[in-house]
């Protein structure tokens, strides 16, 4: 469903601030894969997300979604394949517009926008059904401005907006990081449900190792613009935070040793 082939990207090339954000990344997601991505700050997780969403164009390499090469497709065209939820709960919705209008815009993600009303009676009924699945009482507040909702409610709405049109790829960029623990747990559960229900191919970045272990069928760890660990299937189910830390130490420790050998 998603293929990332040999993608490299370097920021500020040739200056003292040069940063190799991604170095020859290869990643393939099959339909229905739910991959969690962990790694420290600056590991390249967000850059990877931006390359997939079309926010950044890779220096070399390509991105293929649903057998279509989208490497040079601008962000807004690529969004036809991609549902996204951002870290900032304010980023995924239009605050001065109503819940139903926001949903109507999400509805148009995979259709050409026309000069006909965005919110119709039949769509309203559909939106209400979708909102009911969130169990937040938003289905009674279709005409409320989204700016009046709490961060958790907005993020739940963002998640719904990103998923109810069945995107080929769902990108979640630390989408629970800005919420309090109970809201974060709520969104995490919703994520689990909605991905399972639609069988969405998902890539989720998180800083929460427990979350990365609980969700999905595959886990990758990034560091310095490379994928340094890729665990899937049964092995992932048995994985603990302990194991992850050890594994990180082992891989990066080895490299540290070899660096010292070179320098020594």
């Amino acid at each position: 469903m998603l293929q990332i082939k040999d993608v490299s990207i370097t920021f500020n090339e040739g200056t003292p601030d040069e940063k190799k954000a991604l170095q020859g990344i290869n990643l393939e997601l099959h339909e229905g894969d739910f991959v969690t991505v962990i790694g420290s700050n600056g590991a390249g997780k967000s850059t990877l997300m931006n390359v997939i969403s079309g926010n950044l164009v890779p220096d070399v390499g390509g991105v293929i979604i649903a057998d279509k090469d989208v490497t040079n497709l601008p962000e807004f065209k690529r969004s036809a394949y991609i549902g996204r939820v951002f870290q900032d709960p304010m980023a995924g919705t239009a605050p001065s517009m109503t819940i139903e209008e926001n949903l109507a815009m999400a509805f148009s993600r995979i259709r050409k926008r026309k000069l006909k009303p965005g919110v119709t009676k039949s769509r309203k009924a559909e939106f209400r059904e979708h909102l009911k699945t969130l169990n937040l009482g938003l289905d009674d507040r279709l005409n409320a401005k989204v700016g009046l909702l709490s961060g958790g409610e907005r993020q739940a709405l963002s998640l719904l907006m990103a998923t109810f049109t069945n995107p080929n790829i769902l990108l979640l960029d630390e989408h629970t990081a800005a919420l309090d623990p109970s809201r974060a747990a709520l969104i995490t559960n919703l994520t689990k449900e909605v991905v399972a229900e639609h069988g969405l191919t998902t890539l989720m970045v998180t800083h929460n190792m427990q979350q990365a272990l609980d969700l999905g069928n595959r886990l990758i760890m990034m560091d310095k613009g490379q994928i340094i660990l890729d665990i899937r299937g049964e092995r992932k189910q048995e994985l603990t935070i302990e194991d992850l830390l050890k594994e990180f130490q082992r891989i990066r420790g080895e490299q540290f040793e070899s660096d010292r050998a070179v320098l020594g």
Binding site: E75, S79, G92, A104, S108
Partner: peptide
């Protein structure tokens, strides 16, 4: 209130969001 009109309003409200819903801002 049309689909294009909604996208136009969202462009003034939250460009990043409406781009992620495939609108050419």
């Amino acid at each position: 209130k049309t689909e294009i009109g909604l996208a136009l309003r969202a462009t003034g409200d939250n460009q990043r969001m409406i781009r992620s819903f495939s609108a050419n801002t």
